[in-house]
Nucleic acid binder design. Structure first.
Lengths: 300, 300
DNA sequence: TAAGGTTACGGCGATCGTAACGATC
DNA sequence: GATCGTTACGATCGCCGTAACCTTA
């Protein structure tokens, strides 16, 4: 058994049990892959993959259990390299941030600018995706950390840090009838609503609040992205419900924002990363910057 | 990086940073070890070991962090082999049981006999040691499971299963003055006592009980081993305090046993093993046998 | 000076690549 | 018949062993 065989198992997994694709990924010829797999299975004394004829179609029960250990080894191996690289030069590296559009646009700019000042040698990749996919990206190790509001609590492989708490707000054009007067769920529900898609940016809190009150919103437009919502609010399509933190008093001065914290339970934005994954010192610093920015947000 | 380098790091660790000893353990010449270590450190770009001249004297800060990952990899690697061996033939293998004399003699015989009937191909090694050392043996992977009463709760790497609860008892020769009349701590404390050594078989419970009552026992003989205690009780040296489960009504019919459950808090015997360590199916079966035997003990 | 670690070099074996073959959709 | 996997064989590169050298208790 050796590390390239372990690596091979991972790559076969990631390429739908295709040895030829795996060989491409590993930059060696297919016959070499075939032989290494045979050697490995021979050493174990039992096949790892289910086969139909010669073709691999899945894992055997043995293979299933082994893949857990394989994942552990690969994780530890990359950790070793990451730890060493961090020691050699802690200002050099890559940071993959997975997040949603709203966070990327309204929360991250300040911490990212500050981070870049201290770590100019670190390349930053912003991966925008749905909350569901953010978690997948962590597991696939395409992202180092994820910043999001929904769907992170359940996963035992993830370390989750609370970042900040925020409330929803309505936005309407100036002079809109909803820009004045008492805000109740009943009144809100009487307007056509524009808000986030399911699974995005606290949409679940909105649903919960309405369900508890036995009501339903007339959501005529859902978007993953606050800017899209604002755009259609400006066009007079209806009332926008967005994250309060996504209202910019200067840019959005043509819109009236009204807080909904008394109607919709708060949402909590969190930072998540793989528990067993080593985070370079600059990544830990970036998390600190996020938490500082979060505190500042709370202070305002 | 490859697995033998990772293995090498582990072995260097286990041999006080001596490359020559490590080379013997790995059955290769010392120069090969030296070169592999150099290659590894070159790959990381930073030394793993602190050196005085040419001699290795310890880990660098980098090395310290890396050794955690190394341990993980080695564990996962042996797990893979163990899982495979279990699949190939789940009736063949080795079981290392670390325990104290008292458990080995008075609790384990029945479950071990039953276990052997079902798994005649499994070789059993009984490692007797002090509770302190039992845990060390688990960590050093010299033992697969440990059965003991003391010192297991603190360790987060260990999975601990409750096995059975028992009480201490006094044993005295027949016609001894303590064989009749009310049993109190005061009365007990007036006799010379023979019991377990510190750290063994619930000795801590005895200490706790006495301390709470503001008293002290006159322990004139401590032993790791119930049989030694009984022997000297028979010689009239004093009053024995032993585990109630270690009294055999037939063999020990010349001794009178009197329960102390109203005076000394109960002790709990547990089964412990490394969380991340794969246990072959026969080992899991053995644990089941232990639990069955424990229930039977409670039923009597 | 003995013991531990490094450097140099030759030989062997593991693993790769080419290529021909076999099987399956 | 095109794609995917296996088998055979020659070539290469990595790793070990021998041996001489360096360094420190």
């Amino acid at each position: 058994m050796n590390l390239s065989q372990i690596e091979l198992l991972r790559i076969i997994q990631e390429n739908d049990f295709s040895l030829s694709k795996a060989s491409e990924k590993m930059h060696i010829v297919q016959s070499a892959v075939s032989r290494q797999l045979q050697l490995f299975e021979a050493e174990l004394g039992s096949p790892v993959y289910e086969r139909q004829g010669k073709r691999l179609v899945g894992l055997t029960p043995l293979g299933l259990r082994i893949m857990e250990q394989v994942a552990t080894i690969n994780m530890a191996k990359t950790n070793i390299l990451a730890i060493a690289a961090d020691f050699v030069d802690s200002n050099q590296g890559v940071l993959h941030i997975a997040t949603t559009h709203t966070q990327a646009k309204y929360f991250l700019p300040k911490p990212i600018l500050r981070f870049r000042e201290k770590f100019p040698g670190v390349r930053i990749y912003m991966l925008e995706a749905s909350p569901e996919q953010l978690i997948n990206k962590l597991h696939a190790r395409e992202a180092d950390i994820a910043i999001c509001t929904e769907k992170v609590a359940e996963d035992s492989d993830l370390a989750v840090k609370f970042c900040y708490e925020w409330h929803h707000a309505v936005v309407v054009p100036q002079m809109h009838t909803l820009s004045e007067g008492e805000l109740t769920l009943e009144r809100l529900a009487s307007y056509p609503i524009l808000t986030y898609s399911f699974g995005f940016t606290g949409r679940s809190s909105i649903e919960t609040a309405l369900k508890d009150a036995g009501m339903e919103l007339d959501v005529i437009l859902s978007a993953a992205d606050t800017d899209v919502i604002k755009t259609y609010v400006r066009l007079g399509m209806g009332v926008g419900i967005i994250a309060g933190t996504a209202y910019d008093p200067i840019i959005d001065k043509d819109l009236v924002m009204r807080d909904l914290s008394h109607l919709i339970p708060s949402s909590k934005t969190k930072i998540a990363y793989l528990k067993n994954n080593y985070l370079p010192s600059y990544t830990q610093h970036f998390i600190d910057e996020l938490l500082i920015a979060a505190v500042e947000l709370g202070g305002n």
